[in-house]
Amino acid sequence: MAFAQFVVNGLLVGALFAAVAVGFALIWGVVDIINLAHGEMVMLGGYASYWTITLVNGSPTASPGLALASVPVAVAVLFVVGYALQRFVVSHVIGTDLFLTLLVTFGLSILIQQLGLQAFSADPRTISVQFAEQSLDIAGLVVPKVKLIAFVGAVALTIALFAFMKRTRTGRAIRAVSQNDEAAALVGIDVEHVRAVTFGLSSAIAGGAGAFVAMILNIQPQMGLIYTLKSFVIVVFGGIGSVPGALVGGLLLGTVEELTAGFVSSKWTLAVSFTLLIVLLVVKPQGLFGEGMGGEAE
């Protein structure tokens, strides 16, 4: 029974990790950038949703409908933020040294955190979603409703991205750029625009996940780092550039962490996750679903 409860807890929170990591995988795969400011996109998405609800309601307390309605706002705002970051900042270092891109995104992460501290203060904030009964009791398992919504939302965001990449013209253009940017340019694809759209999409999904984080946990200007770290682990788990890999990787990481917390101790969650990562890198360096380093985005 305890085992089942820990797995449920893990899957519920793992879906959020997955949605965050999917965007991280996308940028890594297509734009070939390890975006160290990815966690800050989660943070900004959380605040976008928080302030939307506060503006509408006068307090960060929302009905489930309003809470859900704030997610597209966070997605839209973060798309614009991501697009602009790529177009005006990150594009200048693409194709240069890997170290330089790390440095630029790291700098962006610090800058956004500091601006966040100025704008929002260091106080943790949270959105309270109102239900008559907060949790469902399914066969003796406690399932918080807001987490279930976040789970469904996070999976939906991930699947939507997957479908977008597979079915739309822009999605195909993104995949073309990821395979060969020069050839893509030759057939008339605006590579700069496509890269910026990819960055925008990546940030948008992270922002949507951030809105859910604000509902089930809380948000703070300096919360981003742990999400960037987890994304890194998940993407290496799942395979660089692979959207399904990130989804499975996220669910797996969440489950492993909660099982560790449940049966051993929370103290060991990070150690266990990173040990798994190292083992996987030794045994299957391309990740569970990946084509190896620099593999194409699916």
Binding site: L12, V142, T269, L270
Partner: peptide
């Protein structure tokens, strides 16, 4: 139970 500072979800421990 002790948990790392980075832990943001206390569900399992509260369970």
């Amino acid at each position: 139970e002790s948990f790392p500072s980075g832990t943001s979800d206390l569900s399992t421990n509260l369970g």
